[in-house]
């Protein structure tokens, strides 16, 4: 029982894990950029006056939101063999979270007072100016905490990239375990690193939430 947990092995595992952690962070950051932009595009096009845009976008949105991310990842991985797994991973995670984000944006946009829409019409602003100068600045403010919460939850779902052989932290931990015939240190440490990184962030977001509430 004494060699169950070896500090030696634990220290060996740390650099390997941190290397994987960089990929985890990279995937989260870029994935979130994709999600934030695409989510907004989805939310706006679901308010389009043309049914031919609204309907397919809405249906695709629901379909992607309700099906497992892992399956989508593997699907894209086999479908686009010429693209690197990491790029596929970031794109698929980004698209998956864009469908969550679109709901958040939608709530934010619905929260803008109807008088604001009427005012832009009264001032005969075009659609671009209406969105850019009036609606979005008000809508996005209230979506910031949700954006943060989804960033944290995306961070915790990047290990799913394991499925498409991207060596992020958990894959690195698993490989390390397999090489040394001992999983306990690497996997435990990977979990702890997740906890250490995500808990303060979610505290920060909770603070932001109370700060922005008005």
């Amino acid at each position: 029982m004494t060699d169950l947990w070896s500090w030696d092995r634990a220290f060996q595992a740390v650099p390997v894990l941190l290397e994987g952690f960089q990929i985890t962070l990279l995937a989260t950051a870029l994935g979130m950029v994709v999600a934030a932009i695409l989510g907004l595009a989805i939310a706006i096009s679901r308010r389009s006056q043309f049914r031919i845009i609204r309907w397919p976008v809405g249906a695709m949105n629901e379909f992607i939101r309700q099906t497992p991310l892992v399956v989508q990842l593997v699907f894209a991985y086999y479908l686009f063999t010429s693209i690197s797994p990491l790029q596929i991973g970031i794109t698929v995670i980004g698209i998956h979270y864009a469908t969550y984000m679109s709901e958040v944006y939608r709530a934010g946009i619905d929260g803008v007072a109807p008088g604001q829409w009427e005012a832009t019409r009264a001032l005969s602003m075009g659609p671009v100016r209406t969105w850019r100068a009036v609606i979005l600045p008000q809508a996005i403010r209230s979506t910031l905490p949700a954006l943060g919460n989804y960033a944290v939850s995306m961070f915790k779902e990047t290990p799913f990239l394991f499925a498409i052989s991207v060596v992020e932290m958990v894959t690195a931990a698993q490989q390390f375990g397999a090489q040394h015939f001992q999983y306990i240190e690497a996997i435990t440490l990977a979990g702890l690193i997740f906890l250490i990184a995500s808990y303060p962030t979610s505290l920060l977001i909770r603070k932001l939430e109370t700060r922005l509430a008005y």
Binding site: K156, P159, F162, V170, Q174, Y183, I187, T188, G191, Y199
Partner: peptide
């Protein structure tokens, strides 16, 4: 909540047998 689902799954699957 803070440790990822996949980590927990792997922990139960790979590490618990060692204990």
């Amino acid at each position: 909540r803070g440790t990822s689902l996949l980590v927990q799954l792997f922990w139960l699957f790979y590490v618990l047998p060692l204990l």
